[in-house]
C-alpha cells in the first residue's frame, strides 16, 4: 500500500505526531464497511487504496470494484462522515480507476470473513481465464465441491449465483476478476 506521508502539517491537536495522524486517518477510513457485503471493510476488499494528509487536508482514495458499482457513492459518503466524526475537518474522498481493482487485493482475513458469512470467496488469482472455461467453487456452507453455477450474475455486480448439490443450498460466489 503506497501510503504517502508527504504532509506538511499535522492535523490538530498538535500533540499527535504526523505519523499518528496518518495512522488514525487510515484506521478510520479502513473500518468503513461495504454496504452490500457488510462483513467486509473497504480495507478487506482492497477498495481503499491510499490515504494522504497534506496541508491539514485528509484525502482518501477509493476504487470501484465494477464500473457500475452502485455502492461507491455511499462508500465515499461513509468514509467522509467517518473521518469527520473522528475529528478531521478538511476531508476529501477521491475515486480512482487505475490500477483496476482486482479480487487479488482482497485480504485473507476478508476471504475468511466472506466464507463465514456464506459467500464463497474468489478462488485463486485473477489470471486470464479461458473464455468458456469451467471452474470449481466449494460450497461455503458444507464445503462440498459438488456445486453448480446457476448464473454468472448474482445479487450484486461482484457476485455470481451458485448452488450446492450436496446440501441443496443456494449460495453467492464472489467472482474472481
Amino acid at each position: 500500500m503506497g501510503a504517502v506521508l508527504t504532509f506538511d502539517q499535522a492535523r490538530q491537536p498538535a500533540d499527535k505526531s504526523r505519523a499518528d495522524a496518518w495512522a488514525d486517518a487510515w484506521a478510520v477510513a479502513a473500518a468503513v464497511c461495504d454496504p452490500e457485503v457488510p462483513v467486509l471493510t473497504i480495507e478487506d476488499l482492497g477498495v481503499l487504496r491510499e490515504v494522504r494528509i497534506e496541508n491539514g487536508r485528509v484525502e482518501a482514495f477509493i476504487t470501484p470494484t465494477y464500473s457500475g458499482c452502485p455502492a461507491m457513492n455511499l462508500i465515499a459518503l461513509n468514509v467522509e462522515v467517518a473521518l469527520e466524526e473522528a475529528g478531521f475537518t478538511n476531508v476529501k474522498v477521491t475515486s480512482v480507476l487505475s490500477p483496476a481493482w482486482t479480487t487479488d487485493w482482497m485480504s485473507e482475513a476478508g476471504k475468511a470473513k466472506l466464507a463465514a458469512y456464506g459467500i464463497a470467496p474468489p478462488k485463486g488469482k485473477a489470471g486470464r481465464r479461458a473464455l468458456f472455461g469451467e471452474e470449481v467453487v466449494a460450497c461455503p456452507r458444507c464445503g462440498s465441491a459438488d456445486t453448480a453455477k446457476v448464473s454468472e450474475f448474482g445479487s450484486t455486480a461482484c457476485k455470481a449465483h451458485w448452488r450446492c448439490r450436496a446440501c441443496a443450498e443456494p449460495f453467492d460466489y464472489f467472482k474472481c476478476i
Binding site: Y66, S67, L97, A100, T102, L131, F132, I177
Partner: peptide, 20 residues
C-alpha cells in the same frame, strides 16, 4: 487506458454469458 482496464474484465463476462 484506466477505463479500459476496468471495462475489459466486465466485457469478458458479457462475452461468456451471451456466447453460452
Amino acid at each position: 487506458a484506466a477505463i479500459a482496464a476496468k471495462a475489459e474484465k466486465e466485457m469478458a463476462y458479457h462475452v461468456r454469458h451471451t456466447g453460452e
